[in-house]
Amino acid sequence: MRQMIAGNWKMNGTLAGLSAYASALRQGVEGVDLLVCPPFPLIRPLIEALGDASIWVGAQDCDAKRSGPHTGDVSADLLAELGARHVILGHSERRADHGESSTLVRDKARAASAAGLVPVICVGETEAERDAHETETVVRAQLAGSLPDGFSGLIAYEPVWAIGSGKTPSEDEVEAMHRAIRASLKKQLGEAGEAMPILYGGSVKPANAETLMRIPEVGGALVGGASLKAEDFLAIASAAVRD
C-alpha cells in the first residue's frame, strides 16, 4: 500500500514563500502520496502554485455546520469549492486549545465527508496519560467518540507529548499503538477498518522517518515543522517509499 505523507503547516507560511516551496515540491517522489495542509488563506494560492503536480492540498479544520452565524469558522463546502481534498480534524492542539470534544470532531467529520473531503482524524495521549499507562484506553475512547458510522478517511496517531518536542515513542510502542488502533477500527467499522491508513505523527523528521515508516501498520506520516521546508518534506517522503 502506498503511504501518505501529510504536512500540517499549522499557523505558518506566507504568500511570498509559496512559489519557491511549490517549485521544489513539484519534483515529487514516486511511490508515495503527498498532502500539504496550509492555513486557510493559502489553500487556493498553493493549489495554483502547484499546478498539475500530483500533490493534494488540504485544510487544518472545518466547521460542523454548512453555513450560518459562526464568525471566524470555515465550512467544509467552501473548502471543497476552493479545491481542498482532505481536512485534518481533532488535532490535539484543537482539542486542547479550543476545547474540542470527540463529539464535535465526529460532527465535523460528517460535514467533511458530506462535502466530499477526506477527513484525517487525529488521536493521541498526553504525557500524563502515558505515565499513568492509559494510552490505549484514551486513544480507543477518542476513536469511539470521533468516528461517525460508516467513516471513510484516515487516522493519525500523534502522541501529544511527542509533538514538537523532538521526542518519539520507541519502535515497539509505535507498533503496539498502531496495532491497537487497527483492532479498534476493525471493531468499529468492520471490513472498512482493515485497510484504513493509520499515519504516525509527532516529531517526524528526515533523520527518523525511514525507521518510523517501516514499522508494521504505519501507513504514512503527519508531519509538522519538517513540512515547512520542501527539502525536508521530500526527504521524509523518500523514506516512506516501500521497496
Rank of each mutant, 00 (worst) to 15 (best):
G17Q: 09
P119G: 13
M177K: 08
G224V: 04
R85S: 12
Q188H: 10
L222S: 04
L143A: 07
G201V: 09
S146M: 07
E48A: 13
I121T: 14
G224R: 02
E134V: 00
P206A: 01
G99N: 02
G166A: 10
L50F: 04
H70L: 11
T135K: 01
P197Y: 13
I47T: 10
I215V: 10
A109W: 05
E191Y: 01
G219C: 05
V36W: 05
E171N: 14
L46R: 09
S75I: 02
I47G: 04
P169S: 11
L189G: 11
A24R: 14
I155W: 13
C122R: 03
A96D: 08
L189F: 10
H133Q: 15
T137K: 11
S101T: 14
A240D: 08
M11W: 07
R140H: 14
N12Y: 15
G13T: 11
D243I: 09
G164V: 12
A115W: 01
M1E: 14
G58W: 05
A16M: 07
D232A: 14
E210S: 13
G190A: 05
E134C: 05
W56P: 00
L199Q: 07
T168Q: 15
N8W: 03
W161C: 03
G31R: 03
R95G: 04
R110C: 14
W9Q: 10
A24W: 00
D63P: 00
V36N: 08
G224T: 06
S165W: 05
G220P: 08
G7Y: 09
G220L: 05
G17I: 00
T126C: 04
S227H: 13
E173A: 14
L25W: 02
A16F: 04
L78C: 02
I47N: 07
D63Q: 03
I198R: 01
L46Q: 07
G72Y: 13
E194S: 15
R130Y: 04
E173K: 05
Q3V: 11
S146R: 12
M177V: 03
F233W: 15
D131V: 01
K229S: 13
A53G: 11
P38I: 07
P206I: 00
S165H: 05
L89V: 12
A76I: 05
I88Y: 00
A195R: 14
R140V: 15
S170D: 11
A53L: 06
V36T: 08
R26G: 13
S238A: 15
R66N: 09
D172R: 13
M4R: 02
C37I: 01
N208E: 09
E175N: 07
R179K: 12
A195W: 03
A162H: 09
G145P: 03
C122W: 03
G225L: 04
A114K: 06
C62H: 07
R85F: 06
S238R: 15
